[in-house]
Design a protein around this nucleic acid. Structure first.
Lengths: 131, 131
DNA sequence: CCTTCTATTTAGACGATGTCTAAATATAGG
DNA sequence: CCTATATTTAGACATCGTCTAAATAGAAGG
C-alpha cells in the first residue's frame, strides 16, 4: 500500500486510484507545482487520467487541509495607481482589495537571506470584514 | 486638455487618444481594476477601442512607472504540501519559488485594523539570486 | 503641403488556465 | 445482487494575456 493512502484516509479522503497518483506527485514536491504541472506529470504515468479529475483532486485536497493553494504564479493582475510601496488587504467574501499604508504594517527579516538580493516585499492580508 | 495628458507626458508617454481614455479610467481608481475591468470600462465610452490597445497601454504605463502591476487576483495557483504558515521568495529571473520559514520573517501590525478579522498573512519577497 | 519613416492601433487568432455539465463508471451499504 | 451515491470522464466553455500582420496615425524633413 502506498504511504499516501494513509495520509488521504487521515484527512477523510477516499483514496481512489486517480487521487493516489495525484497525491503521490504533489505531496513530496518541493517545486510548488501548478495544477497543469501536476496534470502533465501525472499523465506521464497514467495517460488516461482526465483533466477534471486532477483539478477535482487538488481542490478536494485543499478543502481537506492536505495542501494549500497559493497565488504565487504570474497570470492575473490588477493595476494600482499608487506606486509607492504599501500593502494590501483582501476581503475573502467580496474579493475586494484595500490598501494598507506602509506605516501600519512592518515586515522584518530576522536573518539575512544569503545569496539573494531582495528587491520587493509584498504583504497580503486575507480576512473578513466584520462591519 | 485632460489633466492626465500632463501626467502621461511627465512620464515620457505620448498621449494618444486611446492612452488618454485608459489613463483616465485607471489613474484615479481606488478599485484596483484588472486589465479586463479597464477594457470593459473604457469600452463604455469608446466602444471601438481594441483589446490590444488597452493591454499595450497598461503595459507601457507600468514600464514608465505610472502604475504598478500586482498579482492580487485569484487565477493562477501553485499547490504547496507545507500547510503550516510560512512565507515565500520568488526569483524574478527564473520564477522559482522558495520557502521561508516563519521564524525568518516577522510581520507586525502597528495598529489594529478596525472592522476586519485577519485570517491569514502572506509575505512574498521578490528578488534575484546572486550566487 | 507632400513624402517618408516610425509608432500605434486594430481584428483576430492563439495558448494557458480553470470551471462546468452530462453521461458513464465505480463503489458502498443494505 | 441492487440501489443509491460518489467519482471519473470527455469535451465545451469562459477568462486572461500574448502575438501577428495589416491598416492607420503622427512626426520629421524637404
Amino acid at each position: 500500500m502506498h504511504p499516501v493512502i494513509g495520509r488521504l484516509r487521515e484527512h477523510g479522503i477516499r483514496p481512489t486510484p486517480q487521487r493516489v497518483v495525484v497525491a503521490r506527485r504533489v505531496l513530496d514536491s518541493k517545486a510548488h507545482p501548478s495544477a497543469e504541472d501536476v496534470l502533465n506529470a501525472v499523465r506521464r504515468d497514467s495517460p488516461l487520467i482526465s483533466r477534471a479529475s486532477v483539478y477535482n483532486a487538488l481542490k478536494l485536497f485543499v478543502r481537506k487541509g492536505l495542501l494549500e493553494k497559493r497565488p504565487l504564479r504570474d497570470g492575473r493582475h490588477v493595476y494600482d495607481p499608487i506606486v509607492e510601496p504599501h500593502h494590501h488587504l483582501i476581503d475573502e467574501r467580496s474579493g475586494r482589495i484595500y490598501d494598507i499604508p506602509r506605516g501600519l504594517c512592518r515586515v522584518r527579516l530576522t536573518k539575512p537571506l544569503p545569496g539573494f538580493e531582495v528587491r520587493g516585499i509584498q504583504v497580503v492580508l486575507k480576512g473578513r470584514k466584520t462591519t
